[in-house]
Design a binder for these strands. Structure first.
Lengths: 242, 242
DNA sequence: CGAGTATTTGATGCAGTTCAACGCTCGTGG
DNA sequence: CCACGAGCGTTGAACTGCATCAAATACTCG
């Protein structure tokens, strides 16, 4: 049973900009189907030319790149509303792989129809570009974190980042949020070893700043954590939803 | 004296996809002027909402982000044909700063007119999105390099990357290419200290793989360097030019 | 109950940082 | 004309943050 865009709860969140009825109807036609994938499913593989693009409706995942010898860099974490497969959609091949971390449900769009969006709906085309530019911003942040921050700062930054994204989507319950990611995913996102990631998280826990465990992140004081992370206010602007 | 797009030598390079006469004329109208900036000029500042977008016509530069305490992460290096300011153009604010490393000349576009591109020229709008997605790919590569590669691999990767980009633009003379960047820029791009960057470059020199000095990079054997860098063939597809 | 996955902790070693100094080439001003 | 300082590259020595190795715990699941 696939959700009608009309009934989609996602677009009512204040994380997203409002859509006109017209836009909702158009998206509905652009959408070809809906899929549910189990944890650890690879949705898109680096180098592949996927016939499909997706919008995350539900669940969490991650994007990563691998070196030939197996080292893995996690590029970003996927949340509902994220649009994946754009590189394959416009450039022909993915620059990274995409994996589900929890069970996810995604809207499926046909890659070949993307061109018709540009022809018929300049506003939606603009939104797609907005999302691409936004991804650029996130990657820049991540690169800066990996390149310049110490392990402690980097971990703090990542937790703040995840928490802020979750907040905008109403995924936070009090101080806590549920996440499907393993410490290994965090380590690969920060460019640190698993062992040192674990010790760094332990340090944050001892400082009373953040607790990671049992699939939950608990952050009692975001301001204190943000100070460690050395991040600006970084108000998350509402994003377009495709 | 500003160049007419019609006479622009850039688009004749095989680094770029061919443009129809129609497209050239449209770009000409989209272009508002041309500027020349001296080395070390900051074109765009992080957080600023620039009224202008640029395409690099000539010269080299870099994009970077800074932490409040002064640490700097270089995100990417700018070559002719690169389109800068897109974040400000579509999202309203830049996520990073942009600086000229050599004297540069740039085509200037009016930010407010970007919307009319989406309305009137879906093909050009698509090209803009292509470029945004392409930047995403480069940032992903860079992040993987900083996060996963050792200093030696990372330096090798960066040199290979710069050389490949330069080749596509006919900026390579035999084994050598001229670059305006300092070792400090390299260090900030790789997330390494200046001292260690220097020693790593010395190591590559002793191995006979690459020489960096006096504003020139000399790479006698790209294949050998690429092996160290652990990069795939990575043929640079022709890109659209705005 | 054994196997596999995830987290945790301790011990040891090294890649990369930090500190310090020196040489070179400029441009500038006395 | 030389003295001086600033910017950049280079090199050595000491230190340390993080990686690597190793092993124990706890857990879920067939």
């Amino acid at each position: 049973m696939t959700t009608k865009c009309w009934n989609c709860t996602l677009r009512r969140l204040d994380a997203f900009v409002d859509m006109s009825d017209e836009e909702v109807r158009f998206t509905e036609r652009f959408k070809t189907s809906e899929i549910v994938v189990e944890p650890r499913t690879t949705l898109l593989r680096e180098g592949a030319t996927s016939p499909q693009l997706y919008t995350v409706l539900n669940g969490l995942g991650l994007r990563y790149k691998m070196l030939p010898d197996g080292r893995r860099q996690v590029l970003s974490f996927l949340f509902p509303g994220d649009f994946v497969g754009l590189q394959a959609g416009v450039m022909g091949a993915m620059g990274h792989s995409v994996q589900a971390s929890s069970r996810m449900t995604l809207c499926v769009f046909d890659r070949t129809r993307i061109w018709s969006v540009f022809q018929n709906r300049p506003d939606r085309a603009f939104d797609i570009t907005w999302l691409a530019a936004s991804d650029d911003g996130v990657l820049g942040e991540a690169l800066t974190s990996v390149g310049q921050r110490t392990a402690l700062e980097s971990a703090a930054w990542l937790l703040v980042h995840l928490r802020r994204r979750a907040e905008a989507l109403d995924l936070v319950d009090g101080d806590a949020m549920e996440v499907p990611w393993r410490q290994n995913d965090l380590a690969d996102a920060m460019g640190l070893s698993l062992v040192h990631t674990n010790k760094t998280l332990a340090r944050l826990r001892q400082m009373g700043l953040a607790t990671w465990g049992d699939g939950r992140i608990v952050i009692p004081d975001m301001v204190a954590l943000a100070v460690i992370a050395k991040v600006g206010p970084d108000l998350p602007e509402p994003r377009p939803l495709i």
